[in-house]
Nucleic acid binder design. Structure first.
Lengths: 352, 352
DNA sequence: AAATCTCCATAAAACGTTTTAAGATGGGCA
DNA sequence: TGCCCATCTTAAAACGTTTTATGGAGATTT
């Protein structure tokens, strides 16, 4: 009948072929109302014969939902963010969502209106905001703005009222790292921090400081150097730090990249790790066990966090769809784990 | 008039408010036909007053395109794939596309029909297939299958007829690495390869072998050990290799992660790099300059490749939309760059 | 035998846009 | 005045689904 090859097969083509109406085909496909067994078989056969594929745009239009979640992320070239994304993807797939990915070029950017409008226009069912909390790039987050948007879950954000947030517990991670160094009998524990514009960097700094203070140790400012998360700043950081405070015998470094730079600087200066200086990193990059020496580091549970974020978002989406009242906004915190390796305990005790 | 708060503002609401018809609002928004200046102003005012946001699902339905590209990727936890994705995202945004991301859990999976059907059903305008070519996971790629799908660009794939492909030139990269080692006067150049199921791994191996053969050197099988891309296999690989061939004085390692393991093994065995063994990696991870010693490595141009992939795909999409004939399928190859650092030339010549 | 149920199928309306074909308005020209 | 033309608008039809209200056939009850 139709010989036009550019004609895409629609549900009414299938209906014709199977001698039923479009509505019946729809019922057979969605299973929302009963269809007799033999007509269902005819329909399925017609679908196969014609190679029919439903148009999810049309379905989304009438259903008022796209089965799509908007993911706003940044820093994907780093291990942490991409790991989080993988968790997000796995869980979203399991729940039948597709992901609309928007990468934020410059995460300091606080003018995100165009982006939010785009996601709204595409009618995403919900949004995961996986951009680090830096400077005032969260200034747009306010109840009246959120009301115009689909449900949102924020990742890694300084808690604030009326917002649903998932956080890796940087504060606790820093405490665990510092406590570990204290238990090893280290006297003077320095820190190389991330940029203090970053909320997470401030949390890690706070964890270090409060842990030291709690055990009556010094946590003064000249034990801290601020880096930029990159290895180079770790390398420079160690040099600066040892000039100021040569007696430092342990270091908590706010991420593994900078820790790698620290290790390199130590080698160059002829310092032994961990004998002269013990080093703890943060992130547990897959290569951390193969640093020289293997790096003791804090492992945040990012995969879990990504999955939980999607589950929570899904609940919010469903509540909205069914007209129930939203779950109460909450802050979920994911405790990290300390991976002890050579850079703190030496070669004897690890790696048989 | 409408007090129902759950009512989403549509184009006809705007039309009412501005005392025009829906068609006119559409014309004003798309700019496809002229609209008088004062009515346009009225319309824009109404849009602002009501907070109207166009429904891109509806627009996609009637326009027969979604302004969306499907990105199928895997291995996002590694540097290379995420870097490629960033290039893809940048260029796609510039051309007005959004990205529908589908991560392939197991890239060996060759049954990708469900995934392709989903992307078709969502009416993506085109697809970027950014999954590594492993085993027979490309067996589904055949002209008759491709004909049912939106335009596709494949990344990193063994060339085959009638398919558009972007490739980082692994063969050339491996040759550059090996040639560099030869020029440094190294005698016996081993290799730690990636898994040979991977097309890229085979290309790198071929580059190493043919470069050696071209200069009359040995390239026998016992100079090669196969790893799994991970640092651990590099560490084990060096040990195995030196047991078989203790005279090895240089090593080409198929990626930086494994090279890191090699460096670690060298330290453990008391071998000096580069004095005893020179090492070249592949990928140029951001941390490569901070390895101990800093790693000489091959830098593939992944960002460029991602961008070019989108541009090419865009041309294919437009050709299809306008009913022109498709651009001829082609294979584009991106030449890499050698980053020379301490692990081959020592500390004197780099890093002042 | 009539009335009532079940079960299944359908036609038509909706979802929110763009596009098509046609119409209205007013000005210029003969 | 009558005609044509340019410029702007519009009503209605599409796009491909799902849903709503309706209907018809047979089985079951009264």
């Amino acid at each position: 009948m139709t010989i036009d090859p550019s004609h895409r097969i629609t549900i009414v083509d299938v209906a014709h072929q199977a001698n039923v109406s479009a509505g019946t085909v729809s019922n057979a496909l969605t299973g929302k109302r009963p269809v007799a067994e033999d007509t269902r078989a005819r329909i399925m056969q017609a679908i196969r014969d014609l190679g029919y594929q439903p148009n999810l745009l049309a379905r989304g239009l009438v259903n008022q939902r796209s089965q799509t979640l908007g993911i706003v992320a940044s820093g994907l070239e780093y291990y942490g963010p991409s790991r989080t994304l993988i968790g997000i993807d796995q869980e979203a797939n399991a729940l039948g969502y597709s992901l609309l990915l928007e990468l934020l070029h410059n995460p300091l950017e606080s003018n995100v209106d165009a982006l939010l409008n785009l996601l709204s226009a595409r009618r995403v069912d919900g949004i995961i905001w996986s951009v680090h909390d830096i400077g005032n790039n969260r200034s747009w987050v306010a109840p009246e703005r959120l009301k115009q948007l689909p449900p949102i879950v924020f990742l890694t954000m300084n808690p604030q009222p009326d917002v649903t947030i998932m956080n890796p517990d940087s504060y606790q991670g820093a405490q665990m790292a510092t406590q570990h160094l204290l238990e090893l009998g280290r006297r003077t524990i320095g820190m190389i921090s991330g940029p203090l514009l970053w909320w997470e960097a401030r949390e890690r700094l706070r964890g270090w400081r409060e842990c030291l203070q709690a055990s009556g140790r010094e946590a003064s400012d000249d034990l801290v150097v601020t880096g930029d998360w990159k290895a180079g700043s770790g390398e420079a950081g160690l040099i600066t730090l040892l000039e100021k405070r040569p007696e430092i015998d342990a270091l908590f470094v706010a991420n593994d990249d900078m820790a790698m730079g620290v290790l390199r600087a130590a080698h160059r200066m002829g310092k032994c790790v961990p004998e002269d200086i013990a080093v703890v990193g943060y992130d547990n990059m897959p290569t951390a066990p193969y640093f020289w020496p293997a790096l003791t580091t804090v492992r945040p549970r990012l995969l879990d966090m990504g999955k939980e974020a999607i589950q929570t978002l899904h609940r919010m989406v469903e509540a909205k769809r069914l007209g129930r009242d939203m779950p109460e906004p909450e802050v979920l915190t994911f405790g990290p784990e300390l991976m002890v390796r050579e850079s703190t305990v030496g070669f004897s005790r690890v790696d048989g």
